[in-house]
Design a protein around this nucleic acid. Sequence first.
DNA 1: CCTATTCGTTTCACTGTACGGAACAAGAAA
DNA 2: TTTCTTGTTCCGTACAGTGAAACGAATAGG
Lengths: 236, 236
Amino acid sequence: MAVARKPNAGVTELAKKTGLTKSRAYRLLHTMEQRRIIKRTSESTYGLGEAMLVLGITASTQTDVIRLATPILEELCQRVNETVQLRIVDGVEALCIAKAEPSRDLRVHANVGRRRPLYAGSPKCLLAFQPQEFIDRCVPLKPPALTAHTPKTRVAILEELTRIRRQGYCVSRGEVSDHQVSCAAPVFALDNSVVASIHVVAPAFRIRDSELEHIIRISTSAAERLSKSLGWSEDA
Amino acid sequence: MAVARKPNAGVTELAKKTGLTKSRAYRLLHTMEQRRIIKRTSESTYGLGEAMLVLGITASTQTDVIRLATPILEELCQRVNETVQLRIVDGVEALCIAKAEPSRDLRVHANVGRRRPLYAGSPKCLLAFQPQEFIDRCVPLKPPALTAHTPKTRVAILEELTRIRRQGYCVSRGEVSDHQVSCAAPVFALDNSVVASIHVVAPAFRIRDSELEHIIRISTSAAERLSKSLGWSEDA
DNA sequence: CCTATTCGTTTCACTGTACGGAACAAGAAA
DNA sequence: TTTCTTGTTCCGTACAGTGAAACGAATAGG
């Protein structure tokens, strides 16, 4: 997992990150390389290997969230005719684990595997429903201003999170990148925890208020359908 | 890996498959469950867990084959306007690790993570370039007749493999499922081994001989481009 | 050019971990 | 009932994997 988190790191660096001895780290890396769990990306830097790829792809067919989400994402994508993403929390970041893209020429490009900070833009939808202790750890005191619309203070972000919890969805207008609007809705599991979020991302000029409302309506409904198929049901 | 290969298996079954003691198997499963590498699918049956999903998705962004293939697959998909797949050998099967689908209504559906036997249809393209010893192990004496066009004998398959090696691509007309035509081309790595194959799958009625030739031409060229971007260069 | 660090790698004696075998409870089948 | 299965736990011991230290080979600094 340390290798995944920090690709192209060497033995010493990985040993430090994980708190292992250098010799232990070295030996672990050595045997994991033999088993193809990791591979050398250059002389003495490591990355995830082929075995991990195969296991991960297999995992995605055995995991409910992905299996059930795929058709829902595709339908949503077709209805809004914009790029759709499924994200989960990994570490202190949002990780895109599935996507669907429309075939129109001008669209926002999405990438499975890409990570984003949780405290800016539509990933806030994931953050909002995490334990307060986790939220406090994730939101920086001085969030970097990516665009003119990025919330400038920690307090502003925390207030936004409260609003998201209340209204049940999140809208970001050019917060993380200009000319981009995104809308996200939370996906609940049996225990009422939020396990993922569904995002619709679109070029800003195409989204007037009326379109935005339409997108909000059907993406929250898509997220709700996914929640229900995961066993969740609506109560306090 | 045993859990991946055989989902919904219990302790005893997994212990047998792996040659481990029952107590060892139990303890390994127990700690892997704590680390979220695997999860219980029911009382005492196991499947791959969330950690595996995250690692696998991360691996796919760190793996050259996938990263470089994605744009090539998408371009190929657009040019042939049919479903395109990227497959690798896993165990004695072909595993689909990436795909691209056109947006037209009638198309062959593909699924990342799906496995197919290596000895029938276009996966033969992968098999053809493996070591002879491996081929012998994979091709059954009496291959099951999936359709009227499935090769009926072991010898027929072996001859087909020779032809594939000679011509550098593989065509399957309804071998694994009626009304489906597929065409595959091998992807080479630096050491001239075949690491993957690019497949174009289409409904049979749409593919006349002239279209097929066109598909063969541009899919072999796509595979060649991918090979080259992996560091391969054409020599004996 | 010579230290001073840094890196990855290897050695070695030791110890604490993870092992196998057997026993256990709880079901299911005979 | 008995006799198979399951999954789970116990326990004494062997030995695998450990940490610390040493090693050679780089790179950086003065």
